[in-house]
Amino acid sequence: MKRLSLALLALVTALVAEAHVPFLKPNQFNVTHHRLTIESAFTEFPFQADFAMDSPNFTITSPAGEVTAIKPIAKTKAAVYLEPELKEEGSYRISTGQRVGPVYKAVETPDKKLYFAADMKRVSGKPTTMNYYSYADTYIFKGQQKYKPVPLNKGLEIIPLASPNGVQLGGELSLQVLEHGKPVPNARIIVVTDNEHFSKRRMEDLYDVENVRPSNLHANQQGEFTFKPQKAGLNFLFVTVHHQLNEHLWESLNASLTLEVNLPPETANKP
């Protein structure tokens, strides 16, 4: 029993050694059949589920803007699964809502940057603590897209200003970063494509405040930015905002958005 306990402790330590980020992943964005499943998990490399992200605030927003709570239908160690029902044509927002996480040990550097998990080993500064908040969104549709932005105005959100299901390779999509309904000026948006760490050998921690990958985007003073996808398929947008609450406590607000980028019609059937 003692050996088993030590093994479990080692496993838990390994899981929290790196900074994980939240994501939602539908098995279909254009919903054409009833086998719709949405995966909710934390990861270091989207979209590979490392451990389950449950939330008391899962919601579905209908094309008419009606927000309804939804409950998971299954949970494993790696992921939580949702099966929302789409009753009408149009675009639907699936959201974890703001999920309150644990308080972590952290390091505050002299220039007011905040680090936790494995990042603490490579910086020096003042010991502090950090409360981690997660927020993940994705959009699916049935029939016509019929989209309008509907912020929940709680926590950190990445809100598409046009239909997120209409974005194509070679096109663009306007979005806005909001915190409690207000624009976040100059927000940094990390852009990741599915499995890119295999093709580009990228090892940067997505949460790292010093992450300067070339694909990063930055919002303007109104929190708005333009996403111009460089690869078709699953794309992951991620934002982090830090606030110091007092001398000993920070809060870390984290939001992600999963998008499906399609090929333009003229190239969709070409090899």
Rank of each mutant, 00 (worst) to 15 (best):
V80W: 04
L257D: 01
P271T: 08
L6M: 14
A232S: 10
L161C: 02
Y139V: 06
L8V: 13
L234P: 03
V184Q: 02
P46R: 02
N57R: 10
K270N: 08
P102Q: 13
V67L: 05
Q144S: 11
T61Q: 05
A106H: 02
T13M: 13
T68L: 07
L114E: 01
S215K: 06
Q145C: 04
K71H: 10
Q28W: 05
V31D: 09
L245A: 09
K228N: 03
P26H: 02
E266I: 08
T193K: 09
E88C: 11
V177I: 04
N27Y: 01
A14Q: 15
T76V: 07
V16M: 15
A118D: 15
L169C: 03
N254A: 13
E247V: 06
L24E: 11
L169V: 12
L36S: 00
A41R: 06
T68F: 05
S163E: 01
A78T: 10
A232L: 04
L161A: 00
F45M: 13
E88M: 13
N131M: 12
H197S: 12
Q28A: 08
S91Q: 06
E251L: 08
A41S: 13
S199I: 15
I73S: 03
P22T: 01
K77D: 15
A10H: 09
F29H: 10
I159H: 00
L86W: 02
R201E: 14
M53A: 04
L36F: 07
F51Q: 06
S62Y: 08
V123F: 00
V212A: 15
K71Y: 12
T128L: 02
R201K: 14
L156F: 01
Q28N: 05
V67N: 06
Q244M: 04
E247P: 12
Q168H: 07
I38K: 00
N30D: 14
A162F: 05
T13P: 03
E89I: 07
S134I: 03
D205T: 14
D137L: 11
N269C: 13
Q230T: 07
K75F: 06
S40C: 06
I189Y: 00
L234Q: 09
F23K: 02
Y207C: 11
P265R: 10
L175F: 07
D50E: 14
A79K: 12
Y207L: 13
A106M: 05
Q48A: 12
Q176A: 02
T61R: 03
P22R: 00
T13G: 09
V100H: 09
Y147M: 02
K2S: 12
K200G: 11
Y147P: 06
D111A: 02
D50Q: 12
T240C: 09
T61A: 05
N30G: 03
T193V: 14
I70A: 08
L263V: 14
T43L: 04
H197I: 03
I159V: 13
E266S: 15
N195I: 05
S134K: 05
P63C: 03
L15N: 13
P149F: 01
V209C: 05
